[in-house]
Design a protein around this nucleic acid. Structure first.
Lengths: 193, 193
DNA sequence: GCCTTGCTTGAGCGATCACTCAAGTTTAAA
DNA sequence: TTTAAACTTGAGTGATCGCTCAAGCAAGGC
């Protein structure tokens, strides 16, 4: 190799993720990406292949970051505490100017029926996240924080649905997301009986 | 007037709503609208002004239809029964090939920050729907189905959030929306104490 | 120094975007 | 039957879409 790329590819993917997250698939043009990433068309296509391919990559790192965040919380909390902390983490102000709503959900809702592959990918990643939630609920049962008669998979599905509702609601200017998050977290405590 | 339009304007707006609902704002081109509505560009702009203006109209009729549906349920049910029936109505198969997810939410998530006016309109319409929910919760308190210590506005906000989560989840191919809807409806019964 | 390799550049591709408007057609009143 | 008002038509506007590629340039090996 005689010449290396002048940019940090991972950094570019992260910046692209934030742009896609905020503006959506169709709402983000190549011009937007070129300006945000500081890259000319030729380099863009050499590095990422296509807009679709880059979007798919950003979905993957988005989901991986989410999983990492959950793992981080799990180190400082018990299983139910992790789930509660995760909900409450969506109560504050939004970081990086990124959107509150889940990027996977935004993707799913936007591209359903048009970009089938992206929709399937988003569904799959949501499913994977739900499996992590189910594992935490299962661990919470063993720890005695959740009554045995509950089905962890069902709890995880409901929890995921609650998160989706919370995070979408947080995009509304007149909704107190923190209050909503506290209510959902309080609901988790009620699973003990 | 010497010549009347050859189409039923209301019918066109309804068809446009279903198209926008499914494909979103950016995902629906004027070509799509022309094909679906059977109208040439000239007539389109004479009748609706612009793509934005038509979208705004479809949001309004979407919200009005939702309110009408709720009123219909209220004629056959008590206040809490209406809220339960409303949740459960999103459990079945989707009509007209329309999307399960709420069009107001899809709009809000898609156009946040780009089409400020449409986002504000969607927020406002969601707020109006929430006020109707709050009125039903308030009536349910008077009827004795909901304990007095609950705040109807908070219940309505949570209910709205649950609905958003349910309807977005229903877009996922691997989610049993009916089960989720029954759980949410069951949660409403728990408000008696 | 030169050569080779490979990233960067940016003009420009055809297609599509939302939209316009002059010309043609239809209708009801006169 | 004529006339004028209103609707329909569709070619065409400039802008932007995602994307390509030939030419230019930078950096190790020799």
């Amino acid at each position: 190799m005689v010449r290396t790329a002048s940019f940090d590819r991972d950094d570019l993917v992260t910046r692209a993720r934030d742009l896609f997250w905020r503006q959506g698939w169709a709402g983000t043009s190549l011009k937007d990406l070129e300006l945000t990433l500081g890259v000319r068309p030729g380099s863009f296509y050499a590095a990422f292949g296509s807009k679709d391919a880059l979007y798919a990559e950003t979905l993957d790192i988005y989901a991986a970051d989410g999983a990492k965040r959950l793992d981080g919380l799990a180190k400082e909390n018990g299983p139910l505490g992790t789930l509660k902390a995760h909900v409450l983490s969506f109560a504050g102000s939004r970081p990086f100017g990124a959107a509150h709503a889940c990027m996977l959900v935004k993707t799913l809702l936007e591209v359903q029926g048009r970009q089938g592959d992206l929709a399937k990918q988003a569904s799959r990643l949501l499913e994977e996240m739900e499996i992590r939630f189910a594992a935490l609920f299962s661990a919470a049962q063993i720890a005695g924080d959740v009554a045995k008669h509950h089905d962890p998979a069902r709890l995880a599905r409901r929890y995921q649905s609650d998160l989706i509702g919370l995070r979408a609601s947080a995009e509304r200017p007149d909704v107190d997301a923190a209050e909503l998050a506290r209510e959902i977290a309080a609901g988790l405590d009620a699973l003990q009986n």
